[in-house]
Amino acid sequence: MDWKNAYRSLYYMDSKIPDIVLNPAHTALLSIDIQNTYLERAVRSELNESERHTWDLWTPFHERMHQRVIPNIQLLLELFRENKRDVFHTRIACLTTDGRDRSLSQKRPGFNNLLLPLNEHASQIIPEVAPLDDEIVVTKTTDSALTGSNLRLLLHNMNVQHIVVCGIFTDQCVSSTVRSLADESFDVIVVDDGCAAASDKLHEQELTIINNIYCQVMSTEDVIYELGWS
């Protein structure tokens, strides 16, 4: 299915979706929260029964990340770098060792309650998609990269108008950032096969919610074509 007809919600069921016009000179790539804490796993055989059940539930996410998402982000990084376009990275990390600077969304009990001090291994971006020396990395203690950092100012200063977004998690930090970007009138593209949520169902639901309102959802291949780099 072509990108204009994928992920249509009821709001846009009968709408005519306009063509995308991406000016590479004003387009940046934003990679969100591809960090060690989310990609490293314990050895399954060393876990108890309850922990193994949770481990198994997360296996589809890890398979998607390693088989599709990370390779596609690597490809996008390569092309943006080759074409001398700006690349931004975000990561969740607190500035205090006890995490008291985190926003409420990063303190709630359960999955989001991760203590990720700035300089610890868990908070670092994984080597496979690590930033180069001249690429900007913003640290945030919120879901939205705009709310939790000076990213908005940086994008305006660097004359970025179109932002290609990839990363994790589709229904959390990706979605929150995309909504903030749209509210600031940036033109946002979300890379379907460059993102993941805890499950494919959550991923697809969130893309359906944000598509055509806050962004356009496209595949890696579509993005490359629209930028004229294919």
Rank of each mutant, 00 (worst) to 15 (best):
Y11C: 12
D14C: 13
P18S: 08
P24C: 03
H26Y: 07
L30Q: 05
N36D: 05
Y38C: 06
L39Y: 08
R44V: 05
S45I: 02
E51A: 12
H53F: 04
F61R: 12
F61P: 08
Q67I: 02
Q67F: 11
R68M: 07
V69C: 11
I73E: 15
Q74T: 08
F80I: 11
A93E: 01
C94S: 14
T96H: 06
G99H: 07
D101Y: 07
S103P: 06
K107S: 14
G110P: 02
A122R: 15
S123P: 02
S123I: 03
I126L: 02
V129S: 05
A130K: 10
E135V: 09
V137S: 00
T139Y: 01
T141E: 10
G148I: 02
N150H: 08
N150F: 08
H156S: 06
H156T: 08
Q161P: 01
V164I: 09
V165P: 00
C166L: 01
Q172Y: 13
Q172M: 03
S175D: 11
R179W: 04
S185K: 10
D187A: 06
C195H: 08
A197L: 04
H203F: 00
E206Q: 07
T220N: 05
T220K: 13
E226D: 12
L227V: 14
L227E: 11
L227N: 13
